[in-house]
């Protein structure tokens, strides 16, 4: 029964788990809807109007941009990362350890693979929602070009699945909920700061650029920025493949790891 990738074991029933998680989000919608809509407004005020006043035009890809225009796509990418990762990281941990939700559902026709794939799907949906909400705000501030920015929607869903898989993996690793501080400190926060979100990587020393290349968020930022700037090009295909391949690998790893925790 050993298959190369655990995703082959997932059935349509994963959507039942997805529905369950989305239903919970609808019950608690205020806490889910407002943050992705309000966070970018705070960023725009702090960085665009506050810090941006001290920053001269940023040169990127041969053109000069306002700091706020430069920052906007970074905010979208960061929003997708945070909302998707945290959804599975804390959500799945709580459902596993405190609410015992998985223990209840494993007694129904859903398999462990169905349950965990459903978790990743709903985390990915949170990523899509965050990406769409922040894009809306950024658009209202006149910081996104169209139609190229529309690619951000499917991209947020795909990157959301990748980050949700990371979140699930971290949840599966952590013996206690406090242990989740570690991946935030070592992985999420460095990505937040060093993925080309706040400053261009072009002028950085080689080792910084090399490190950034390894961080998944960098690739999401690359495509998102080209999209809001209206300057998509074929070279971004690399970034897309990176996200796609990493999403599949981490999804398999996280489902295996969490399954071992669920069934022992």
């Amino acid at each position: 029964m050993n298959k190369i990738c655990v995703l082959q074991e997932v059935s349509y029933r994963a959507w039942h788990m997805w529905r369950r998680n989305i239903d919970v989000s609808l019950v608690t919608w205020k806490t889910n809807v407002l943050p992705p809509l309000l966070e970018p407004v705070l960023y725009i005020l702090a960085f665009g109007i506050g810090l941006g006043a001290y920053v001269q035009k940023i040169s990127f890809d041969g053109r000069a941009y306002d700091y706020l225009t430069f920052l906007a796509p970074g905010m979208i990418a960061v929003g997708v990362m945070f909302h998707a990762t945290f959804d599975t990281m804390y959500g799945a941990f709580v459902r596993l350890r405190y609410q015992k939700t998985f223990d209840a559902i494993i007694n129904t026709p859903l398999s462990a693979e169905d349950i965990l794939a459903g978790e990743i799907l709903s985390g990915g949906t949170k990523g899509l929602f965050a990406g769409a909400a922040i894009l809306l705000i950024v658009t209202l501030f006149g910081l996104a070009s169209y139609p190229s920015s529309l690619i951000i929607l499917p991209l947020s869903a795909l990157a959301g699945l990748m980050f949700a898989s990371f979140g699930l993996y971290f949840a599966a690793q952590a013996p206690y909920i406090d242990n989740l501080n570690l991946p935030i400190f070592l992985f999420i926060n460095p990505m937040f700061l060093f993925s080309g979100t706040f400053f261009p990587l072009d002028g950085m020393p080689g080792w910084v650029r090399l490190t950034a290349e390894l961080l998944p968020l960098t690739h999401l930022v690359n495509i998102t920025r080209a999209a809001t700037f209206g300057r998509l090009h074929a070279g971004l295909f690399r970034d897309l493949v990176y996200i796609l391949v990493l999403a599949v690998i981490v999804a398999c790893l996280s489902i295996n790891k969490m399954k071992a925790r669920l069934i022992k």
């Binding site: 369950r20 239903d23 919970v24 019950v27 608690t28 609410q99 015992k100 939700t101 223990d103 209840a104 007694n107």
Partner: peptide
């Protein structure tokens, strides 16, 4: 019917 109460607290 499990030993532990694993109802969905959000519903």
């Amino acid at each position: 019917c499990p030993q532990e109460v694993n109802l969905d607290p959000d519903f």
